[in-house]
């Protein structure tokens, strides 16, 4: 085979592959996200669908997710298309026992596929850096909520409301929140998938409290802990589930809590103790989706519809819940 002929046939191969790579990239991106790129068409199913974003922090993160999906789609195409093309086109023909051409390497090519990924790496370092610090950035009017994790539950305190105790996080929509978290026993992690952010909660105990925490008043001993900090700004009204993401023993799977994102008016009512929250939403019967009974809750909260207790929780007033917990935990807020 002459050199010239080889080159021209390679040109054909490479042209086909170039087209296929573009097609494959677009196809893989569509499969991953469920959205056809450069159009408004949705195919209704994305393999790597992320839950609906419900916090301001989700925006830089989701942007980076999108960049990663493009990277995945492109690199997948770059590897798989030539691979499958070779398998289909160059495979051993029937009865051909000869060896393939002796091509042992190409330094220019090697340098190229070392340097070009470096450019991608550099881009993702910059984007990763930017989005990370965008997520960490503090806001002016933050409200502090203190979270205590223990096997296998969460407690929350509102230092700006006289250390008010709550079993759920309740925040007005659009209010930046600074979570100061501490653990009483082992490492836990705070994760709300719709908010995207996650932070491990360590049992840092700078004053060596009694580990027998059942009778300890943790809200007043708070200062002895070095808390871990996390920020989120809810932008959607609804109920979201807090999930402990670090293995912590027997009931790790059930270590859940709730974030209620209310309108400012409802939130003010809640602070005044005049607002009812579903105390223990029965998640096993709830609807799919991370903000899983947004619609029902919305109706319920606005008094325009029926909230079915069997589907979402019972209608005990929040005050009563607090009283119960106060009795159990020995806390003394009222």
């Amino acid at each position: 085979m002459s050199n010239h002929k080889n080159n021209s046939s390679n040109t054909v191969h490479f042209s086909i592959i170039g087209v296929l790579i573009v097609v494959c990239t677009l196809a893989v991106y569509t499969i991953l996200t469920g959205a056809v790129p450069f159009t408004d068409i949705s195919i209704g199913y994305g393999l790597f669908e992320i839950p609906q974003a419900a916090s301001a922090q989700a925006q830089p993160i989701d942007w980076l997710f999108d960049a990663h999906f493009w990277l995945i789609a492109f690199l997948f195409a770059v590897i798989v298309v030539p691979l499958l093309y070779s398998i289909v086109v160059f495979r051993q023909e029937e009865g051909d026992e000869t060896d393939a051409p002796h091509i042992h390497g190409n330094t220019a090519l090697e340098i190229a596929w070392t340097v070009v990924p470096l450019i991608f790496v550099a881009a993702f370092i910059v984007w990763g850096w930017q989005s990370y610090f965008a997520v960490l950035a503090p806001s002016d009017n933050e409200v502090t909520i203190r979270a205590q994790a223990y096997k296998w539950d969460w407690d929350f305190y509102y230092p700006e409301h006289d250390n008010m105790f709550s079993k759920s996080i309740v925040v007005p929509v659009g209010q930046p929140v600074l979570l100061e978290m501490q653990s009483r026993d082992v490492i836990h992690a705070f994760w709300v998938p719709a908010f995207r952010v996650k932070q491990d909660v360590f049992p840092y105990d700078t004053n060596a409290l009694e580990k027998n925490f059942a009778n300890a008043d943790y809200s007043s001993n708070y200062d002895h802990y070095k808390p871990q900090i996390m920020r989120f700004t809810p932008i959607e009204e609804g109920v979201f589930r807090v999930r402990c993401a670090e293995i912590c023993g027997t009931s790790h799977y059930a270590m859940l809590a709730h974030v209620f994102v209310l309108s400012q008016a409802d939130y003010d009512l809640w602070v005044a103790g005049e607002y009812k929250l579903p105390a223990d939403p029965d998640f096993l019967n709830a609807q799919p989706g991370d903000g899983y009974y947004l619609d029902e809750l919305d109706d319920y909260l606005n008094g325009t519809g029926e909230f079915d207790p069997s589907a979402g929780g019972d209608e005990e007033p929040a005050v009563e819940v607090e009283d119960e917990s106060a009795a159990v935990d020995g806390t003394d807020e009222s």
């Binding site: 980076l64 997710f65 984007w127 965008a134 997520v135 996650k198």
Partner: peptide, 17 residues
């Protein structure tokens, strides 16, 4: 390919654990 998405901190905050 599923590695870099775990390597950048912001996306790892969602995907970690």
């Amino acid at each position: 390919l599923s590695g870099p998405i775990l390597g950048t901190i912001a996306t790892d905050m969602h995907l970690h654990d």
